[in-house]
Every structure is written in structure tokens, then in C-alpha cells.
């Protein structure tokens, strides 16, 4: 809790962020042009975006989603299908992918965000599986289990981006933009409303904040960003299939947020970097990767619930409600009822 990233609003963080940007810009040079390493760096940038967007849902607003991989997939498939079937350029398909994903997210949000948390987890999980099943069983659109190969790379002013360094810069710019966008949202009237909802829904509504509306907003923006990330991924990797966007993907993103730290800007970034580096740095661990992720998640939640650089123990109890708080059934409104009735 004593890290500078964790402090709310004040403190000037600009030098840190400028330093970070300069550092990541220099990455291809530092890596000596190794294609393999630059590709890993590119994936890191992509996962920074995914984890940061999920953090909007989990860390800022205090909701849960196990369907983030599916939204990522919807973005990837939308962009790929449009690019291949209609021959549209990436710069058109990418925003469409984002908007479509956001619409799906808004729809799911409107339907499910009134559920209690436990049920929300299962609702989003079921949604993720439904998306996967649809992709697998709609061959005329998605080529089903065969996946979509040969997705064209994007081009800028007539130049096709083919080398991994070019790609790295493209996705890096995207990642910086998205993190910047999330940063600005967080430190604004909107971000305060989200955090207020996370901290106390009843108090938030008494301050005039539309709790449900802001929840749907957070969910929609998170899905928009995940959809955009999906489009960037599809055109970078050039081959996509349903199994890249299943439960494991949602779980991986969730672990990044939980490990790095919820509710801060830097937390999910750290989480994404660590969880991409670990399996690559310890090649011999490759097959134990998911074992490691599972163990890490358990460990983090039990030992350091706020993650490595989180603002708040996401899982820490609200002030003054330590004992028996786990007995609360869902919304604190019911506690209030009990209190009122007592």
C-alpha cells in the first residue's frame, strides 16, 4: 500500500510514466532485433491492454467477469472475418470489432449486472462458453474448429507491416493509448463514481451515482478495449481459432489482474509482464505453466489479497466488517435490512 502507484490522485507520476514509455520504445534495440524476443514483447503489450481493461471491471468497479477471453475472441473474429470476406482494411475492421464487442458487452452487462457476484461469475463464464460453442459450430462464418488462417497484416500509408519490430511498435502505440485512456478515466468524475461503487454501493447511490448505469458503462468500455485488442491480435498472429479464447484465456487475464494488483493503473501491467515473462524465462517450466498460474493465484489471494501493486485489497473487507462478513448474502442492502429490523 506504500507504493507511489497506489496513492490516489495527487502525487506527480509523470516522470515515472515518461521513463516507462522511453524504456518500452527502446525494447527492440535492447533485444538486439531477435524476432522471438520481440514477439514476446509484443504479446506483453497486448496482455497489458487486456489485463488493464479487465481491471476496469474488477479493480475499479468491483465486479467480476470470467468472460473476458470471449470478448477478446469476439473482437479477433469480427476483425478477421471482415478483413477476409469483405477485404476491408484493418483500420476499418478494427474499430468495428471494438464497437461490436462493446455492444455485446453492454447487452450482457444490462442483463447480468444486477446478479449477485457469485452468480455474475457463473453468468459470464456461461456466456464465454456459449461464444466458444457458437464459434465452433458456425462453420459458414467462422470455419468452425479449423480456425481462420491467413489474416492480412495491417498497412500504414500503403506499407504493409510485416516485420516483428514494426508490429511491436504498432501494438505498443495501441497499448500506451489504451493505458492512457484508462488512466484518464480513472482520475475523473467517472472513475470516482466507479470506485465509489466498488467501495460502497449504498453510499454511492446516496451521492446521486447511478450504480447500475456506471457498472454497465465500465463493463462496456472494458469490452470495447478487449475487442480492439482482439483485432490487433488477429492481424498480428494471422491465424485464430476458438481455443485461443476459451476459459484458459479468461483465467489467465484474471490471474494477471489479481497478481499484479487490482484497482491501480500499474498493477495489471505488472501482472501481465510477470505472467508472460515467467514461462518464457523458465522454459523448463513451460508445461507446468498453468499449474504455476493456479498456484500463484491461490497464493496471492491468501497471502497478499491486494496483489503486488494494488490500491486496495480487492478482497479485503470493507471497513469495520471483518467478522461474519462472509455471511452477508450479496448486497449490503440486506444487511441494512437486518440492521433496520433489529
Amino acid at each position: 500500500m506504500n507504493t507511489f502507484m497506489a496513492m490516489p490522485l495527487k502525487r506527480n507520476q509523470t516522470p515515472f510514466w515518461i521513463g516507462a514509455v522511453v524504456l518500452v520504445l527502446a525494447v527492440p534495440g535492447l533485444l538486439g532485433g531477435s524476432d522471438y524476443l520481440i514477439q514476446i514483447a509484443t504479446m506483453m503489450a497486448l496482455y497489458v491492454v487486456l489485463a488493464s481493461s479487465l481491471n476496469l471491471i474488477i479493480g475499479f468497479t468491483g465486479m467480476y467477469s470470467l468472460g473476458h477471453g470471449a470478448f477478446y475472441g469476439i473482437g479477433a473474429y469480427t476483425s478477421a472475418i471482415l478483413a477476409i470476406n469483405l477485404d476491408w482494411t484493418f483500420w476499418v475492421t478494427m474499430p468495428i470489432a471494438g464497437i461490436l464487442t462493446a455492444l455485446v458487452g453492454a447487452f450482457l452487462g444490462l442483463a447480468t449486472l444486477r446478479l449477485r457476484q457469485t452468480f455474475l461469475v457463473f453468468g459470464t463464464l456461461a456466456f464465454g462458453e456459449i461464444v466458444r460453442i457458437l464459434i465452433m459450430n458456425w462453420p459458414s462464418l467462422t470455419r468452425g474448429p479449423m480456425g481462420i488462417p491467413g489474416i492480412p497484416p495491417p498497412s500504414i500509408l500503403g506499407f504493409e507491416l510485416v516485420s516483428s519490430t514494426q508490429y511491436y511498435y504498432l501494438i505498443l502505440v495501441f497499448a500506451i493509448l489504451m493505458v492512457f485512456l484508462i488512466f484518464r478515466l480513472y482520475h475523473s468524475r467517472v472513475g470516482r463514481a466507479w470506485v465509489a461503487i466498488r467501495e460502497d454501493e449504498i453510499a454511492a447511490s446516496s451521492m446521486g451515482i447511478s450504480v447500475f448505469g456506471y457498472k454497465v458503462l465500465a463493463f462496456t468500455i472494458a469490452c470495447l478495449i478487449a475487442g480492439l485488442a482482439g483485432a490487433f491480435y488477429a492481424h498480428f498472429i494471422t491465424f485464430i481459432s476458438a481455443d485461443q479464447f476459451g476459459m484458459n484465456e479468461s483465467f489467465l487475464i484474471l490471474t494477471m489482474v489479481a497478481l499484479g494488483g487490482t484497482g491501480s493503473i500499474i498493477g495489471p501491467i505488472i501482472g501481465a509482464l510477470i505472467l508472460i515473462i515467467i514461462p518464457e524465462a523458465f522454459r523448463f517450466l513451460a508445461e507446468y505453466r498453468m499449474v504455476l498460474y493456479g498456484a500463484l493465484l491461490i497464493l496471492v489471494i491468501v497471502v497478499k489479497p491486494e496483489g503486488l501493486a494494488g490500491v486496495k485489497g480487492l478482497f479485503a473487507p470493507a471497513s469495520g466488517a471483518r467478522r461474519f462478513s462472509f455471511l452477508r448474502s450479496g448486497f449490503s442492502a440486506e444487511c441494512e435490512k437486518v440492521e433496520g429490523a433489529k
Binding site: A193, D200, A318
Partner: peptide
């Protein structure tokens, strides 16, 4: 205000009050 204080615990004092201006 609330009997069993309902502040936004992990928000700064200043942000708590600014959130009050939401409307």
C-alpha cells in the same frame, strides 16, 4: 450520513468529498 459510517474507505479524504459533488 449513515449510522454505521459508509465512507469510500480506499479513497482519499479529498476524493470522498469530491464524489459528493457528483450530481
Amino acid at each position: 450520513t449513515f449510522q454505521n459510517i459508509r465512507l469510500f474507505a480506499y479513497m482519499s479524504v479529498l476524493d470522498n468529498v469530491i464524489t459528493g459533488t457528483h450530481n
